[in-house]
């Protein structure tokens, strides 16, 4: 029994992770290929960095990347504010009228097909523009509003599950000591859920940074985000500079995620140690 388990489980992990990572590694490998044919290795002139150099000469791409960063930062900030409020309401406010609807509204965007969300957002913006003259045209503003709406659901889930991990005794203690609700939130609840808020911000940013479909619906001419630009390019086939771009993006994300995970782990350990110390002192 143990022999079979000992072989089957590592094998499934190795094959599974190979499936997850080999395509990305192959894409990164061929970004150093000199040939235009991308996947046919030109042994004579490779490896080369020429596709990386080309990226920085492409103004259209740089503009799109800059727009994506702007939208991503605004989206993540907005989504964190709204998602934290929603998570707080769902985790701490107990039953109230309309709770079920709010809970449904926050989980529905998680599974809603993007084409439906994108189409409905665009139609909303058009209808509102017709009625009130705002937002005039579509661009940065409309993309951001749409992104906040679909990413706040993720922040809500993260914050809610983090809050569910603590009982509310600390908050109640602060209330008993006479703190007003806002003070309790800022001084007690916020520090407790800070890792969740940070994780939510990063997740909202990556989701916004990565989104193709909703951006395509809600962006106007002249305002395309990086994924929209890449999508229009790769629809015509593989191209070597996209491989170079992908390599840079994947490496950046990998570094950010690993550093983030490491920092959070350290914080968590520090907090645990402090709690242990506090318990030991009070004994």
């Amino acid at each position: 029994m143990s022999r079979r388990r000992g072989l089957f489980q590592p094998l499934s992990l190795v094959l599974g992770f190979a499936f997850l990572y080999l395509p990305i590694l192959s894409m990164m490998f061929f970004s150093f290929n000199n040939s235009r044919l991308v996947t046919v290795w030109d042994a004579a002139n490779s490896p080369t960095l020429k596709w990386y150099v080309k990226l920085f000469e492409n103004d259209q791409l740089l503009d799109a990347a800059f727009l994506s960063v702007k939208v991503g930062v605004m989206t993540a900030t907005g989504a964190v504010i709204l998602g934290t409020l929603a998570g707080l309401v769902l985790a701490r406010f107990g039953p109230f009228r309309g709770r079920a609807i709010l809970s449904g509204l926050t989980t529905a965007p998680l599974v809603m097909p993007e084409v439906i969300t994108g189409l409905s957002m665009l139609l909303l913006f058009v209808a509102v523009e017709q009625a009130f003259g705002w937002p005039a045209g579509r661009g940065q503003m409309t993309i951001t509003l749409a992104h906040i709406t679909f990413t706040m659901a993720y922040v809500t889930v993260i914050v809610q599950s983090r809050l569910a991990g603590f009982d509310d005794s600390l908050e109640e203690a602060a209330m008993d000591l006479g703190a007003r609700p806002v003070t309790v939130f800022i001084r007690v609840t916020m520090p407790l859920i800070a890792p969740a808020i940070l994780a939510g911000w990063l997740l909202a940013f990556t989701l916004s940074w990565d989104d193709v479909v909703i951006s395509q619906f809600t962006s106007g001419p002249g305002a395309s985000t990086l994924p929209v630009y890449i999508f229009s390019k790769v629809r015509r086939g593989v191209s070597p500079d996209v491989n170079a771009l992908a390599t840079m993006l994947v490496l950046t994300v990998a570094i950010v995620v690993f550093v983030g995970a490491w920092i959070m782990r350290r914080q968590e350990r520090k907090r645990d140690r402090e709690i242990q110390l506090a318990i030991a002192e009070n004994k």
């Binding site: 192959s26 894409m27 990565d210 193709v212 994924p227 790769v234 993006l249 994947v250």
Partner: peptide, 10 residues
């Protein structure tokens, strides 16, 4: 966390 689009492209 890395780009969905680029993973399909791969």
């Amino acid at each position: 966390f890395t780009s969905f689009l680029l993973r399909v492209y791969a």
